[in-house]
Design a protein around this nucleic acid. Structure first.
Lengths: 324, 324
DNA sequence: TTGTAAGCGTTATCAA
DNA sequence: TTGATAACGCTTACAA
């Protein structure tokens, strides 16, 4: 590994000059630039990230914390974070918050000792303690909105669920069951529930709600309970794509056609929504875009919260209800 | 951010002593240890990763390079890498190789300037150029086996596909179509194809093969071609779970029952295999375990290649063929 | 058992 | 336009 001194020696200049050339700072003639670049080339010199970071008190790493590394929603956001970060010359350090952000503090501490340029928290709210532990490292939450205290990038979950429910109502559905998530652990669930309830109330329809834990396996039993309470449901609105996909499958297993007998609507527009047949209609959040914007916001130092537009994607799992 | 000098001052000792205590090196009395720990506590001191890495010429980062950040298979491996790395006190830097490892070299260069303790390459073979660019950073491939030149952790893909095909044959299937992947881009496809062909040949059955690109959307048309060539197929072996899931859905769309009319077998045991109905039978690789072992191998410095056991998982998508 | 001091590779200040 | 030189925060001989 060639160092800046090796390059300097070979180019017959001082390390300082090499640094200037490499970093594009003013103060060198084009003749020296030529020689330096040549030496850099020949030696395959790359500035040491650690040394540079130590000196500048700012490293080129961005942290990204996800509830689980293999979480489908988080993956999309991470994808956006990675591409934006790489474009800006930053490396992405990956961490897992675990259920209820148990590991978040540890990671933030670690990221602080890296002098990270910022940290993106996916599906996790920033707590005052996190804020404190992070020191001067800027934080931003993505895909979750936690009051206006800390910066976040998210859709308006209440409105999105409201719009989606209204869409089902407009299609002619009245008996719409909600397959909600665990309100305690995942913050987006409460507003989504409220959005559904508001739309149903405004339409004079009676809400009917059961809870899963947002994952695939929790949906069939919850759907069972929903159907016990109202066997004549014509639509099920699941607050995650995994649950939505499970509902599509489970309904068909029970001999109901989708969407002819029952329409199904998911949430998030993760890849899962395209892995069932009929493909799941769903409420899309611009997840990858959120990841990109998060990086940008962290680097700008603007750190402003922003609400991004949601969008209803109609695939094959929704239609007008059958006329009986 | 408190530095080691701040701690030293407060504890009334030298920075060297603080370092010794913090790093658990011998050479201090329990009285001083007490004072140092107290000072560390009070100041919330955390050793600076950058400075430490610069000094020791070894940073606490492990790189992990995946074809795409949101790739389901890669996600599982990354999950193992993350947990093993964290347990050992390492941070994980995430990179994307893109199709055909176009970005890999850039990331390796970057990881080298980080003095990374090692790099895990997922679904990507190590090329001599990568090896060169990485300098003294150890590399290991996961979920792909590329001769014996460079270290890798993988299953025996040929044998796994062979075993899976034999399993279908034993169930009584003879007309088994193979839905292969793109042999050029993904190295595991060729051995898997060979395994299928060998099993079919040994059984005296005629192979029939079509190619997709391993992703969901490529499967329906490829299945169409397969069925055109032999409308009486009783089983389809797809070389990825995404394609397998698509086949399950597409067959049902075409009015064939799974598994009664046609059995379907996938490959990899990613989450996708559980997101269809009937759930996809598949060939499992210990992906998460591979990620953990990769980290361990990198840190041990053993860097030996290893073949891990595959396993057939029977879910609902396979059964004996119907007797006509 | 403890401290002093050098130095990891870089950048930034200052002087030339 | 350039070059010395002093840090950045840490570890590690070596000395005491």
């Amino acid at each position: 590994m060639a160092t800046i001194r090796d390059v300097a020696r070979r180019a017959g200049v001082s390390p300082a000059t090499v640094s200037r050339v490499v970093n594009g700072l003013p103060g060198f003639s084009s003749a020296t630039e030529e020689r330096v670049r040549e030496a850099v080339e020949q030696l395959g010199y790359e500035p040491d990230t650690l040394a540079r970071g130590l000196k500048t008190m700012q490293s080129s790493v961005m942290g990204v914390l996800a509830p689980a590394v293999s979480d489908a929603l988080a993956s999309e956001v991470m994808s956006g974070v990675e591409s934006a970060a790489r474009q800006q010359g930053y490396s992405v350090v990956l961490g897992r918050t675990g259920a209820g952000s148990e590991y978040a503090l540890g990671y933030l501490r670690s990221l602080k000792t890296f002098r990270a340029a910022g940290v993106v928290l996916i599906s996790a709210a920033i707590t005052p303690e996190m804020r404190r532990v992070a020191g001067r490292v800027p934080l931003i939450s993505v895909a979750i909105r936690d009051g206006a205290t800390f910066p976040s990038l998210a859709i308006d979950d209440e409105k999105a669920a409201y719009d989606a429910t209204v869409h089902l109502l407009r299609l002619g559905h009245r008996r719409i069951g909600l397959l909600a998530g665990d309100v305690g652990s995942v913050l987006v669930n409460a507003p989504r529930e409220r959005g559904y309830l508001r739309a149903m109330r405004e339409a004079g329809a009676s809400p009917i709600l059961e809870r899963g834990n947002s994952l695939y396996d929790s949906a069939p039993p919850a759907l069972g309970r929903l159907l016990e309470r109202d066997p004549d449901l014509t639509a099920v609105f699941a607050l995650s794509d995994e649950m939505g996909a499970a509902v599509v499958n489970e309904l068909q297993r029970r001999g109901r056609r989708v969407p002819e007998d029952v329409s199904v609507l998911g949430f998030d527009n993760t890849r899962t929504s395209r892995h069932v047949h009929p493909a799941l209609s769903t409420v899309a959040q611009p997840l990858e875009r959120m990841g990109e914007l998060a990086v940008q916001s962290l680097l700008d130092g603007t750190g402003r919260s922003k609400i991004l537009p949601h969008r209803l994607i109609e695939r094959g799992s929704t239609s007008r209800p059958r006329r009986d």
